[in-house]
Amino acid sequence: MTKEKILSRDQLEGRNVVIEALRREKRRIQAVYLDAQAKRNIKVEDILNLSSRQGVSVKRVSRQELDKMSKTGVHNGVIALADPLPSWTTKDLIDDVFNRGEFPFLILADEIQYEHNLGAILRSAMGAGVHGVIVPSKRGKGLTPVVQRVSMGGAEVVPLIRESLMSAIKHIKKAGIPLVAADMDGVSLWETNLKGSLALVLGGESKGVSPTLRSKCRKIVSVPLHHNLDSLNVSVTAGIVMFEKCRQEQKG
């Protein structure tokens, strides 16, 4: 793992994402701005206690000041400024997972245009035990304030790697990890063995998985749907496939 130079800072908005960032301690929290009128509930107490324990300054400010600072429009009375998360490459992440004696579980998400979708994928990935989400270095969304807020702390746990997908696939194939795409016209997900190492390939909201990426995959799977529905939201599809893999692993 290589830490990127601190050339900028991330803005975290919302109680859950700020609590997770403080709790996980993956990066330095520079300051926390808290609504001066916020009621002392469990989450506010968590923010205050965790900040105090780590020596993070908590500044009580007006709701109007938070509104001016906000980049997402939904801050829930708290905004934190933080160092960027440590950066990973696909190769380093795969090596790290194998060194821990685990089977790599990765997601490649091509050209995700809507921040809420990428944030939702990261949130589900955290719950499903995914080791990393890989997105193109020049296309689609990265780790924006909205993505981090929607991920509800998922971005603190699951690395988001920005890298050429072709480069990532080269390392994935070299490691012997099968690539499986979730797209239309595939075999039924319920009849597909997802146990062990896996790299799940997702396409963008409008185009699906590109022909180039499909050609790199060992198998194409689809979620069986009723009433002639041809597709689901990409984050919903991702969640279904992730937790179907979890179900199969637990079943043994």
Score class of each variant (00 low, 15 high):
M1H: 12
M1S: 15
T2E: 15
L7V: 14
L7K: 13
Q11E: 15
L12F: 13
E13T: 10
E13D: 05
V17H: 06
V17G: 08
V18K: 11
R23T: 02
R28E: 11
I29P: 09
A31E: 03
V32W: 14
D35T: 00
A36K: 07
I42H: 11
I42D: 15
K43T: 12
L48S: 01
L48V: 06
L50D: 09
S51T: 13
V56A: 05
K59P: 10
S62N: 08
S62Q: 08
R63L: 10
Q64I: 05
L66S: 05
M69R: 14
S70W: 03
K71F: 11
V74R: 15
V74S: 12
G77W: 15
V78Q: 08
I79P: 05
A80V: 07
L81N: 06
D83S: 09
S87I: 01
T89R: 15
T90G: 08
D92Q: 14
L93Y: 03
L93H: 07
V97L: 03
R100Q: 15
L106C: 13
L108M: 14
A109M: 01
D110N: 12
D110M: 03
D110G: 06
Q113K: 03
H116F: 13
G119T: 08
A120C: 07
A120L: 04
R123H: 12
S124C: 07
S124Q: 02
A125R: 01
A125L: 03
A128H: 05
V130Q: 10
V133P: 05
V133F: 12
P136K: 04
P136T: 10
P136V: 13
G140V: 01
K141H: 10
T144P: 06
T144C: 03
Q148G: 04
Q148I: 03
S151H: 04
M152L: 13
G153A: 04
L160R: 05
I161A: 04
S164E: 00
L165S: 00
L165D: 01
I172Q: 02
V180N: 05
A181Y: 13
A182W: 05
M184S: 10
D185R: 15
G186W: 09
V187C: 15
S188M: 08
E191T: 08
E191H: 13
L194R: 04
A199L: 09
L200A: 04
V201S: 06
V201A: 09
S206F: 07
S206C: 01
G208W: 11
G208M: 10
G208T: 11
V209I: 09
S210H: 09
P211Q: 03
P211K: 00
L213P: 05
K216E: 15
C217P: 10
K219A: 11
V221K: 01
L225F: 10
H226M: 08
N228V: 05
V236L: 07
A238N: 01
G239Q: 01
V241I: 14
E244F: 09
C246L: 11
Q250S: 03
